[in-house]
């Protein structure tokens, strides 16, 4: 069975900030970038998106590309307004306590092991 976001978040210590009732999504690989147009151009639907961007437009990008979740790294603070916007748009935001490299590394091992 493929791992859903709920199990992945619990196993890797990611804190769900929005979309608590959407955590049954099954993530398909991941993409790391802080360039929004890069994500729009290259990410695939269902992917996790690892980024340190925390402004409102990340929600639009995740919704547009139908990504399974945004993973915010480096414990960056997210405005309530962005979290609310994500809730409205059906976008899951997870917070990682680690920097992007470590977050991606853990996730890479985890996803390849789960498959």
């Amino acid at each position: 069975m493929k791992t859903n976001l709920k199990k992945l978040a619990a196993d890797l210590d990611f804190e769900p900030l929005s979309g608590i009732n959407l955590l049954d999504r099954i993530p398909q690989s991941a993409y790391v970038s802080d360039l929004l147009s890069d994500v729009i151009g290259k990410a695939q639907p269902g992917m996790l998106w690892i980024t340190s961007q925390v402004h409102k437009n990340i929600v639009a990008v995740a919704s547009l590309k139908e990504l399974s979740a945004i993973i915010i790294v480096n414990e960056r603070q997210i405005d309530d307004e962005v979290v609310k916007h994500a809730e409205d748009e059906g976008v899951v935001i997870l917070a990682s306590h680690l920097p992007a490299f470590e977050t991606a590394g853990k996730l890479y091992i985890y996803l390849n092991r789960a498959e």
Partner: peptide, 15 residues
């Protein structure tokens, strides 16, 4: 700084 302005917008549109 916001992650825009990477020079990929117009090429993305064209694609």
């Amino acid at each position: 700084q916001m992650g825009f302005g990477a020079g990929m917008g117009l090429p993305n549109i064209k694609k």
